[in-house]
Design a binder for these strands. Sequence first.
DNA 1: TAGCTTGTTCGATGTTTGGCGAACATCGAA
DNA 2: TTCGATGTTCGCCAAACATCGAACAAGCTA
Lengths: 114, 114
Amino acid sequence: MKRAHHPQLDEISLTAVMAALSDPIRVGLVRLLADGREHGWGELRAPVAKSTLSHHLKVLRDAGITRTRQEGTRCFVVLRRDDLETRFPGLLAPVLAAAECDGVGRQVGLAASA
Amino acid sequence: MKRAHHPQLDEISLTAVMAALSDPIRVGLVRLLADGREHGWGELRAPVAKSTLSHHLKVLRDAGITRTRQEGTRCFVVLRRDDLETRFPGLLAPVLAAAECDGVGRQVGLAASA
DNA sequence: TAGCTTGTTCGATGTTTGGCGAACATCGAA
DNA sequence: TTCGATGTTCGCCAAACATCGAACAAGCTA
């Protein structure tokens, strides 16, 4: 398919991260990934077409928020928590907390782990 | 002109705040306002037309990030720091810190206080 | 009252975004 | 090798956004 481009630490821009987190679907995805585990695309349940989901995952990847790994035909995604923490210390936690208490992204869920 | 609408605490949405902070000009404005002082429009120096600046200030206001006060024909703006802290604890500081160290919004400045 | 200053609002424009379905590429399995 | 599963990419569209200049509104000030 394609070897996804992942920005280096110093290529991660604040505004890109903020923009990526300004969409409920993407916030929902980040919330799921906040468990620190790697998840397969297949597990992700969002109320959008798969092409749109692919798009959102690309936005997150390009912003440096997630990392994608490919294994055979399927992909796995994981939160770049440490990288984000290094680049923008203290940023992620409040966002996740706010999203949690607000229910932002609750429309996104996990299927029985695939 | 118009009596600006300011969202209540519980009307402030995370995604709106994130979206508002995904533009360098607006981040720059927030950085200026982070000194806690109230500033007049006139002091604000940004490389955009005044109508555009007005627009950005409206976005910040609508997102609940700033508060606008009118006095005669001129307006003053101030950061709703406490409100934001109440609504999204710990969110603003990391953003400001990241913006600072990144130089995001450095294009926005203050004129000799008007 | 006339004029100046200060913001806001109004098109107009070009870009970006979010969304879809369809077509394509890739790999594993039958 | 053919099929199915899994993502990506490709038009394509409507909506939103950033931007500008021009026109407008509202207060001061002379």
